[in-house]
Design a binder for these strands. Structure first.
Lengths: 131, 131
DNA sequence: CTGTATCCATTAAGATACTG
DNA sequence: CAGTATCTTAATGGATACAG
């Protein structure tokens, strides 16, 4: 049975589940920061990842912890100290992240120029777009 | 200058822009289908990707076309015929998709068991979570 | 320091019906 | 066939304030 029900696009695409787990606006910056700079406290993450609010940071960290990609260590001191670290499972994404980063440097410019062409193209009726 | 402004998480994470372009609920199934089964018409894509509505399919296809990952060919016939095909730029994502698919088969089970552990863990006060 | 609690804005997506 | 037009809902995220 597993997690597949017929309403999910997973059936047609084996990477959809990974997208749900790893790729959202703030999860990749968090994973990247933990992977690149190592174990960090809550406030360090907040400072390193520009403009993320504590609410959202907490939400994403909880999700990553639940999915086993990040570990959370609570030190019962005063004031409290909590450290987050990427897990082995999270680290297993590293080569994929490296590949994506490389794709970005190689191809982001092409995407941007494609957009300029598309946005600047005079809309002709025969194309069926923007009659 | 490019596209970077200080409100984006791109500064801290070089793969955030790729996430915006490639990874959303329906873009990966669309790219996967076009890459795996080749050039397809609108209705073929709709049938192959279960439960996607024409509105959403149109939206994602337009975005992918604008970003240069997919090409759209309009044949002015009656009834009209439109074919979508993955572009060279889109095809350049193939190895990354293969890597993600492999990660999925290897690690999705670990994620699921991590979730079971997390959800079933008795919440102790000392962890600082769920007092 | 490490979060919660509210409230609000934005957006992707789903349901449904309709057009050239 | 290949979409568009509306309307509604759900999910994220942002702003701000406050608590242990």
């Amino acid at each position: 049975m597993a997690t597949v029900d017929s309403t999910d696009p997973e059936l047609a695409c084996p990477i959809s589940p990974v997208v749900d787990i790893v790729f959202s606006r703030w999860t990749t910056p968090i994973l990247w920061s933990l992977h690149t700079f190592g174990r960090q406290r809550f406030v360090e993450l907040q400072r390193g990842i520009t403009h993320i609010t504590p609410k959202v940071l907490t939400q994403r960290l909880r999700q990553l912890e639940r999915d086993g990609l990040v570990t959370r260590t609570y030190h019962p001191e005063v004031p409290p100290r909590v450290e987050y670290e990427i897990s082995d499972l999270g680290r297993s994404l590293a080569p994929l992240f490296a590949g994506l980063a490389e794709w970005a440097t190689d191809n982001l410019g092409k995407v941007e120029s494609a957009r300029r062409v598309y946005d600047g193209a005079e809309p002709r009726a025969v194309t069926g777009r923007r009659a």
